[in-house]
């Protein structure tokens, strides 16, 4: 057993390796029942198709909605679905925190020399969640090609940065929302109103919700940076709700800040748990 006080980069690398190792073990265990895994993955793909279909139907009836055509609407949908799908894949299991606390398995995580967050996030890691990510990426690719985007070098370089920011932001939302279960262990659904609700909200161009909501999800819970601001940047369009165009460059900073806040929420939740023992 190595009790190292290793420097931070080394500790981070080890944490990531542990994450991959745990996730891989779960994948192998699930692969023992390939039929069930395929069925469940198929269902997730169909569910994504249904959601996408709903967006297509709405835009199909409307023609254009707040200035967005069908494919521009699908671009917004695809950015949101990719970000939330990846966050669900990487961090989705965190929402079962309350259940782990109730059954005592969270205590078992605390007596292992690995961050309980890594153990929680990988618990029940399932490749079926790729069934959300892959269709979303496909729609993203199609809408990026079909939409009238002025592909400058900076835009091409910003795309992966924006995607990474969106994913990080969604992970932060997921974690922060799940931390409420440190206080109320059976309130998983309250977190869902932020996670799944956040996804439902960001699947459409935000302008259609009105200025009040756009400002709230820009400055209070920064969901606007998941799909709306990136879409405005990619389509090079002025913000129809009148917010400054400079905001669209803030996505990476917002993502980092959200992750810091979510980490703080996790730490304080953990401290609270360890001082109440629930």
């Amino acid at each position: 057993m190595a009790e190292t006080h290793a420097p931070a980069p080394e500790r981070l690398a080890w944490t990531l390796r542990t994450y991959v190792r745990l996730a891989w073990t779960w994948c192998r265990a699930l692969a023992q029942y390939p039929a069930s895994l395929l069925l469940l993955t198929g269902m997730v793909v169909l569910a994504s198709a249904a959601e996408m279909g709903a967006v297509a139907i709405v835009f199909g009836h409307a023609g254009t909605l707040v200035g967005f055509t069908v494919f521009e609407g699908l671009l917004v949908y695809a950015l949101a679905a990719t970000a939330f799908g990846c966050a669900d894949l990487l961090m989705g299991s965190v929402e079962r925190l309350g259940q782990h606390i109730r059954t005592g398995s969270f205590d078992a995580m605390l007596v292992r020399p690995v961050s309980p967050l890594v153990q929680l996030a990988t618990d029940g890691f399932s490749p079926r969640r790729l069934g959300k990510v892959v269709p979303a990426l496909a729609v993203l690719a199609v809408s990026l090609t079909v939409c009238d985007i002025d592909w400058t070098v900076s835009r091409a370089l910003m795309l992966p940065v924006l995607l990474a920011s969106s994913i990080a932001l969604c992970c932060a939302v997921w974690l922060a929302a799940s931390c409420t279960q440190f206080v109320a262990t059976d309130a998983r659904e309250a977190a869902n109103s932020l996670t799944y609700g956040g996804q439902a909200l960001t699947e459409y161009p935000l302008a259609l919700y009105g200025r009040g909501i756009v400002r709230a999800v820009t400055f209070a819970v920064p969901l606007a940076f998941v799909s709306w601001q990136p879409a405005l940047y990619l389509l090079d369009r002025p913000d129809p709700t009148g917010l400054p165009a400079a905001l669209r460059w803030a996505a990476p900073a917002v993502a980092v800040l959200s992750c810091v806040l979510a980490a703080a929420a996790w730490r304080s939740g953990l401290r609270r748990y360890r001082s109440t023992g629930s």
């Binding site: 005592g104 078992a108 029940g124």
Partner: peptide, 18 residues
Amino acid sequence: ASRIGVVFGQRTSLWWDL
């Protein structure tokens, strides 16, 4: 954690589905 071993009799610390 790496110096001690802990077993809770009423619940397992093994991974249930593995």
